[in-house]
Computed example of a mutant assay.
Amino acid sequence: MQQPATLEDVAKAAGVHRTTVSLSLRNHPRIPEPTRVRVKAIADRLGYRINPLVSALMQSRRSGKPVKHAALAYVTNYPTRYGWRPEHHDRPDFFPGAVERARDFGYKLEHFWLGEPGMTPRRFCDMLSARGINGLIIGRLPPGQHSLELDWDRFSAVALGMTLRSPILHHITENHFDTVWQAMDRCRERGYKRPGFLFSDVNDSPRVGHRWLGAYLTQQTQFPARDRLPVCPGNPTNEEDFRTWFLRHEPDALLVNNPSLLMRWLSDLNRNVPRDVGVVALEHRRELECTGIYYDPAKIGGLAVEMLVGLMHRNETGVPSVQHEILLTGEWRENCMLPPRTA
């Protein structure tokens, strides 16, 4: 990957001292205007960008005043300003953990809503730049939305989860493949012979479902052929299709993304959990404590801040040519929904 241009590169190309470049880029009156214009043009041609962290530090040294808390932006685009908050849905909330970790680095993390009345991508970017905000954390997008149009070259940016697919940024997400891998291992260890898989609710990121299914189908090869069940039809399925599939294949354990819906469907079939069938939740839902893999949203939010601060220190902006993905492995939690199976 090509290294970004440095202040020294601009100075060599312009045939001037580093100090002249620095003052020119800050429009200092000590430098003649023709020189400032020429240096800026060379900096643009070389792709040089001022590192906001270094700039703030130098300003602090010149003025003798400590650097105030720099701000980072937590960007959301739900239909309503706070539609991303847990009281409006049951997805994890990464914001509090990100706020705390940002504070550790001396930053203030502020929420910005792309859906403000009259807001446009250009106006949004100009507003952030005017406030000296150079780092963005992109929150999970609402169901059905997978792209954002911003002037990415102006910012260092990290995405949370896998809902943003265009552009593909560096991002932090749960280790979804390992989620199902762990679940299938537990089923087999505890004597379950016919674990099944279903999407009982909408999966807001199809690539998450692909990873779940990849682990499930691979793990099925560890079971005898007669006990390998087809995935329940539908993404998401409905109660009628689930009933038909369940009665035909009689799974003894179920891996599911929304256990609350599943519990109602099993009750209608006069099936008891865990007496008749075990249940593993692939996503922990607030309204139901269940057996499954738990991911601490505070850790995910904190990891996003750590990655973003690293990008800003290295002055890496724009859409990366090679995106990095950090996967957080989850923790198995019990709640008596997958007890050891008796013969």
Rank of each mutant, 00 (worst) to 15 (best):
L23D: 01
N315L: 03
L311M: 09
P32C: 00
T173I: 06
G115Y: 10
R18Y: 12
L148Y: 08
G132Y: 02
A304Y: 02
T173D: 13
C336R: 13
L169N: 06
L198N: 09
Y216F: 15
A71N: 13
N257Q: 05
H313L: 08
G209I: 00
E289W: 02
T329Y: 13
A11H: 11
R243P: 09
T35D: 07
G97A: 00
R248A: 14
E33M: 02
R122L: 10
W152L: 02
D90L: 10
V180E: 04
P167W: 14
Y295K: 04
L23R: 06
R91M: 11
F197V: 04
V37I: 05
N272Y: 02
D126W: 05
R226T: 11
E250P: 01
R30G: 07
G310D: 14
V54K: 09
F105E: 15
N235Q: 14
L254T: 05
N315W: 12
Y192C: 11
E240M: 08
D93G: 10
F95K: 12
V16I: 15
H313G: 11
W212R: 04
P297C: 10
M119F: 07
C290I: 07
G214R: 11
T221S: 15
K68C: 03
V202W: 13
M119R: 08
R45D: 14
A56L: 05
Q2T: 15
L266H: 08
A130G: 13
N315E: 07
D126M: 01
L282G: 15
N235P: 03
V273I: 12
R49Y: 07
D252M: 03
N51A: 01
L255F: 12
P66L: 05
M307R: 06
G318R: 02
F94S: 05
I31N: 01
P251Q: 04
R49C: 07
P142M: 08
L213K: 02
M312I: 12
H324E: 13
C336I: 05
E87D: 09
L262I: 09
F112V: 09
M58D: 07
E240H: 10
N238S: 11
G318I: 01
W181T: 06
D153Q: 07
A304N: 08
F94A: 03
V305H: 11
E189Y: 07
P251Y: 00
R286M: 08
R91Y: 14
A71D: 14
L269S: 11
E33V: 09
A11L: 04
R101A: 02
H324W: 01
R248H: 11
P206Q: 00
R122K: 11
D104R: 12
P339D: 06
G132T: 01
H170N: 15
P121V: 00
R188G: 08
V37M: 03
E149I: 00
M312D: 06
E189P: 06
L25N: 04
L150S: 06
L141P: 06
W181G: 11
H89E: 12
R140E: 15
L160P: 14
L53N: 02
P143D: 08
V99K: 14
V309A: 08
K108L: 13
